[in-house]
Amino acid sequence: MPQIVQVSPTRMELLKHKQRLKMAHRAHDLLEDKRDELMQRFFPLLKEVGRLRKEMREKLNQAYADLGISKSLTSEAEVEESMMWPTVRSGLDISGYTMMKAPQFKLIMEGDLFCYGLYGSNWKLDFTLRSFPGILRPLVELAQREEDLNRLAREVERTRRRVNALEHILIPRIQDIVKYITMKLEERERAHIINLMKIKEITGRS
């Protein structure tokens, strides 16, 4: 698409824009490499998140089912009462950051899981509570992997847009400017030659 070019057609400008074009090509190549590398990291992470989510869904559904059964063995109110006052405290420590600056957590569980007496509880409830560390750990793992994937996806999107902007907007624009200046300079040169020829003709006649 032709565009209005607002540059003075001088050799100085030509050199400047040629330099810019070289730089833009270099930036394009670098960003393209970055995009490819990010993509290569994106897919394995995506696969892992999918696996973790599936695993977690199964475990959590099993825990919900166990809880449902334990509610049916005694009464719902009694089970709720037993679980209402936990003696365990769960928290997170940040152990580091990943490549995309997503935090990496370390799960801390303090205290006793069994927060109820023998009265009003049942064996299925014990069973459910015992499976908790096995649920919480993959859940935290999933959360941090998902966050990592989220950030990676945003970075891929940003890089892709930059590559496209360079490829389809900036580079063609600079190429147009270079072409415009080259043509103007050639035109000027031709006019100059014709002027010289005319002067020679006039001086030759007299």
Partner: peptide, 22 residues
């Protein structure tokens, strides 16, 4: 130590409450 929280209905929350989450 950072804490964790669960936003959900009563039944879902009960399970996480006994894991020591907010």
């Amino acid at each position: 130590m950072l804490k964790m929280a669960v936003l959900g209905d009563k039944e879902t929350s009960l399970l996480f409450l006994s894991m020591g989450l907010d």
